[in-house]
Write a protein that binds this DNA or RNA. Sequence first.
DNA 1: TTGTGTTTTATTGCCTCC
DNA 2: GGAGGCAATAAAACACAA
Length: 330
Amino acid sequence: MAGRTLVYGQAGGAASNMNSFLLQNQRVGGSSSSSSSQPHHDSLFISSSSSSFLGPRSMVSFKDVNGRNGSNKSLFYHSFDQDDNVDEELEEYIRQPDKKRRLTADQVLFLEKTFEEENKLEPERKVELAKELGLQPRQIAIWFQNRRARWKTKQLEKDYESLQASYDSLKADYDNLLKEKEKLKAEVVLTTDKLLLKEKENENSKLSHSSSLSVAAPKGSTADSACEDEASKVSAVPLKQEDLSSAKSDVFDSDSPRCTDGVHSSLLEPGDSSYVFEQDHSDLSQDEEDDMSKNLCIFPKMEDANYHDPPSSCYYGFPVEDQAFGFWSY
DNA sequence: TTGTGTTTTATTGCCTCC
DNA sequence: GGAGGCAATAAAACACAA
């Protein structure tokens, strides 16, 4: 956009009115590093005979931002009428084309303060600032533009750090919950095992009682025998109330040992003396009850002909593991 | 002193607004 | 259509380790 490109070498702007400029060696964050290939001069006086404005290379001295050493005209404006004692070498250096000059620390400080108050400049304010600092309005605009870009970058970094912290915190919570889930899952398995063993024990006592009444009772299936064998190994431990409530509210793990031969129907036989617990949905909302009716398998009674072949996805009226832990998933 | 990475100043091209 | 803002980029100035 050529129309916007400012030719700094042309006379114009506030600084062009100056007869001469005092250049300082003061640089932003700069050190008078010996490594610098540039000549160092505490102050450089440019002859007023030089008719052309030095453009962005023009650095105007100002001793004190607060104006303690300022002139009447401007805090940063020093006018000198002398046009002699100018080292030609220095002048050549100063006039070097395409050489960038950094703003002085005081100039930057002043601009920073201004930026704190207003990060965008009205055209009038821009010209005013340019006069104050002895710079081209275009330089002021560029400085503010670059400053806004730096501010934006910093802001993005802050936002990123903030998001990172939030993520870390959430991740830690998530990990803790996962651990807790595994712990609870293990408890469920343990409780389920206890409950199964207890059932077998009850069933055994029932069978022995009935066999004493009917001597020629038929022997059960192989699975029955297996369960009986297993149950016979279990000592008679009274079932605690907490075990029952835990088993009621939790779910069974598919990995846990089980007998699917139908003896568990005793759990759901309210009339039976060995009835362990009843399904209580009183504390469930209607929606939850609906969900249960969809997802849970209502066990048939002993008389049901299909009783011995319950759906594989059903177990004790609880969803099988994959579904059972679904509501614990995140 | 030199090589290299960072910061600052300035340009360019595109976009939006009036 | 011109003015001004922004993103991307160039390049000088600067910092610093080896």
